[in-house]
Simulated scan of single mutants.
Amino acid sequence: MRFKGKTAVITGGSSGIGRASVELFLREGATVIMGDIDEAEGTAMMSSLGEGFFFKTCDVTREEEIRALMDYAAEETGGIDIVFNNAGAGGPRAPIDEISGDEWDFAMALLLKSVAMGIRHAAPHLKERGGGAIVNTASICSFQAGYGPIAYSTAKAGVLHLTKVAAAELAQYKIRVNAICPGFIQTNIFAATVGANKEETQAINTVLGQAAASAQPVARPGVPDDIAEAAAYLASDAAGFVTGTHILVDGGMLVGTEGSWNPEKPGMLDAILPEHLR
């Protein structure tokens, strides 16, 4: 019961990583307030998850709705101790030579500004509690090309630096700020990015799961619970000496090229050397 007596606000909690986090934090004793645009699923979750769960419709691209979510959480429960800025989506897929200004602005609003405003409007409530923890969802896309669309990747890189600077500014109030960088996790985000229907989504998730299992040293696909557990650690007192940093939860995907961990694939040096010199 790591969070007994504490209030946690989680955005984007109706599915995937957010849903797993909502359920884990509830099991660990927290009162959870979820903000999400999916009103139907949020209402259904209120019936299924019990009295420790609250839902408020929230479009994180709108600052006034983020402010209202944080104020609602504090009013209903007496304060806020933990915030998990998790809401997001793949966003526009266009490359830099085709993306429009409006598409770029939408991606930044959804993936970066939403986190900044989540911190901004949670901080006064955390200060009133004498401190707390903020966790932000970034991505392996923050580090290098090839893992996501350019707007998404740029926004997630911004989340990492925002996390560091916010941690420095809020340390005086005993507020810790950290980020999680998921690798390929089996959620519907990839299918939603391309507008897949239900059957197509299932097929895409199956293929992604199979591909992810062979794309990193840990030979299985990531699942939402992997990220939820990382979020719970960073939000808990066990991480009381951790701030301004990030945790990679990617099955080792960024440790190096496939040849560095797969004995069946040649390493970079082996690939260029003549066979008798290997």
Rank of each mutant, 00 (worst) to 15 (best):
F84M: 05
A228E: 15
K164H: 14
G42S: 12
E199P: 02
A191D: 10
N262I: 10
E65Y: 08
E63A: 14
M253V: 04
E63G: 06
R220Q: 15
V207T: 01
R2C: 05
G88Y: 04
G52R: 02
V9I: 08
N85Y: 06
D226N: 11
K4S: 13
A89K: 00
V159S: 01
G5T: 10
I66F: 05
G78T: 01
M108N: 13
E258R: 14
I185D: 04
T257W: 10
A74M: 09
A212G: 09
R129L: 13
E229C: 15
R67N: 14
A192T: 01
V218F: 14
A228Q: 15
K56Q: 15
E275W: 14
E128V: 05
V177G: 01
N85T: 00
T193Q: 03
V242K: 00
A231G: 09
V32W: 06
G222C: 03
D225N: 09
Q202D: 07
I82R: 04
P124Y: 08
E63V: 00
F241M: 08
L248R: 04
Q144S: 07
E229A: 15
A191P: 03
I37E: 00
E63F: 12
G222Q: 10
D97R: 14
A213F: 12
V83C: 02
L162Y: 03
R129I: 12
L248A: 01
S153M: 05
S114M: 06
P263F: 09
L254T: 08
D105K: 06
V9T: 11
A155M: 10
L162T: 03
M70F: 13
Y152V: 12
D71W: 08
I37Q: 00
S15W: 15
M1W: 14
I189P: 01
I134D: 07
L269E: 13
E65H: 03
L24E: 03
T31H: 15
A87Q: 07
G90M: 10
I82F: 12
A171C: 09
A107V: 10
A203L: 08
N205Y: 05
V177R: 06
M46V: 00
E28C: 14
A133F: 09
I10C: 06
R120F: 10
S100R: 11
F84P: 01
D97M: 11
A231Y: 13
Q210F: 11
E65R: 05
W104V: 08
A166R: 07
P274T: 10
I140P: 03
E275H: 13
N85W: 08
G252E: 02
L248S: 03
A219Y: 15
G146F: 08
K4L: 14
E23Q: 06
P263Q: 12
K113C: 09
C58P: 02
L110F: 06
A40G: 09
R27P: 05
N86D: 13
G42D: 10
E199G: 02
A213P: 08
G50L: 07
P266R: 01
H276G: 00
A213D: 07
S21R: 11
A73K: 03
A44N: 15
Y72H: 09
A171M: 13
Q216P: 03
I82G: 05
G29S: 08
S14W: 02
N86I: 00
A155N: 12
N178Y: 13
C141T: 15
L170V: 15
T243P: 01
E229K: 14
